[in-house]
Design a protein around this nucleic acid. Structure first.
Lengths: 111, 111
DNA sequence: TAAACATATGAACATGTATTCATATGTTGG
DNA sequence: CCAACATATGAATACATGTTCATATGTTTA
């Protein structure tokens, strides 16, 4: 079962674009904070905006992109819109990345 | 310290910028292909350029960014420079992301 | 040393994109 | 229906950034 943790470039050759698109979406601090807020659980646009101290308009713009990329899902409750993470993979990705950036510089004086 | 798979925004509040920076680097198809090539093992700049069918100059520009972000490491062999992945976290991140984009659309007719 | 090769670097350009503002759409309650 | 609220959308702008070209740095060999 070759599903350990090895990335096979041949198999992803066509997927690279897809991957890059999603990574690009996560490559913005505002969007990443939005994602993190939605990972915690369903949250309204207004609450996200308040939490990030930014305008609902900006948040909505980003939410559209994140929803289109299937990173988030939207559900309506009354006149509010609640967004939450689409699946657990995103949390895994971020978790692994946290482990990466959290690692001490392997050799700091090699530079 | 619960290292399951849960991302805590409070703890990463200051790290979000770091995370976004790395994600942004991976958010470019050319750079992602470079990373994938380096994950396979140490590879020279020329070989990467040939593999991606792009100029050594462009590859070198990207390699500098990736090295600065500690995604890749550089080692000199003769007059060539070999780059390889810094640690295994990157492969994990990409692997998780492949799982995400590879997932069938949960509800395709909801749209 | 000089030439040939490999990589790195800097400037310039063209493109993409995050943010803001104004406005539209949609929803609830009187 | 109208008003108030919540979210979405479109245009405009300011900024970042990927790519190319020319050139520099560094390394090996004749």
């Amino acid at each position: 079962m070759p599903g350990h943790h090895i990335v096979r470039p041949e198999a992803t050759e066509d997927t690279v674009g897809q991957l890059a698109d999603v990574f690009k979406l996560m490559g913005d601090a505002t969007r990443l904070r939005i994602i993190l807020s939605c990972i915690e659980g369903p949250i309204s646009v207004g609450d996200i905006a308040a939490r990030l101290d930014s305008s609902p308009s900006l948040v909505s713009h980003h939410l559209r992109l994140l929803k289109a990329a299937r990173l988030l899902r939207a559900e309506r409750r009354g006149k509010q819109m609640f967004y939450s993470a689409m699946d657990a993979h995103i949390a895994c990705v971020i978790d692994d990345m946290v482990a990466h950036v959290g690692e001490p510089t392997e050799s700091e004086e090699t530079d």
